[in-house]
Design a protein around this nucleic acid. Sequence first.
DNA 1: GTTGGTAGTCATGTTTTTTTGACTAATTGA
DNA 2: TCAATTAGTCAAAAAAACATGACTACCAAC
Lengths: 104, 104
Amino acid sequence: MTTNNLPQEEASCPAENILKQLSGKWKPQIFRLALDGPVRFNSLLRQLPGSNKQSVATALKELEEADILVKTVVQEKPLHIEYTLSEKGQAMVSVFRSMEGLLG
Amino acid sequence: MTTNNLPQEEASCPAENILKQLSGKWKPQIFRLALDGPVRFNSLLRQLPGSNKQSVATALKELEEADILVKTVVQEKPLHIEYTLSEKGQAMVSVFRSMEGLLG
DNA sequence: GTTGGTAGTCATGTTTTTTTGACTAATTGA
DNA sequence: TCAATTAGTCAAAAAAACATGACTACCAAC
């Protein structure tokens, strides 16, 4: 069964959707941190100065809904939650990298 | 003389700056229309249903400030103004295209 | 049973972005 | 001279995004 992953609102332009999914005050930074490996809620909160629980929680939820991050419960010592790049998220990496090449 | 084109606020992440420069309700659509050739104020207003003078004017100004569009006065019949992709704007096209390949 | 770490939610308030509607100003054509 | 088209600006209101502080709930160690 292929699930229908359409976000609530679809723009006419695909690029516009991607931009929307990555835009916001914290999403690009969270995405960038996720490039280096799984990220976690409290850790992000500490790594993003000026951020707050609400904003980070919202950003994570939206990145998950956009199928950019995948949320996993890790059954380990101090039982925790990890967010990792989805396949789509990984496909975005090259786009992200080429943006980094565009100087400012 | 090389003019200093830095925007007021620089983020630590280059990709984040690009995202910021293209984000907003109307900028992606204006950018996409500019891919097909020079765009004009009143024409954009007609092509973007739901838009308004103020928003389009602001988007154009910011795209110009970000050195994505270049504003030109065209000395022709009904003397008008055109916005065309700058070099940087053209460099962004491939990024934009690869975003379009990421299925929403 | 209290402290500390995990990962949040909720209501509220502030700040930023976007929209609305009125207004300006130069040029063109009749 | 009048009307339309060009390309906007300005102040204010509405909407969306973001921040704050209190609170919840689970688990483990002491």
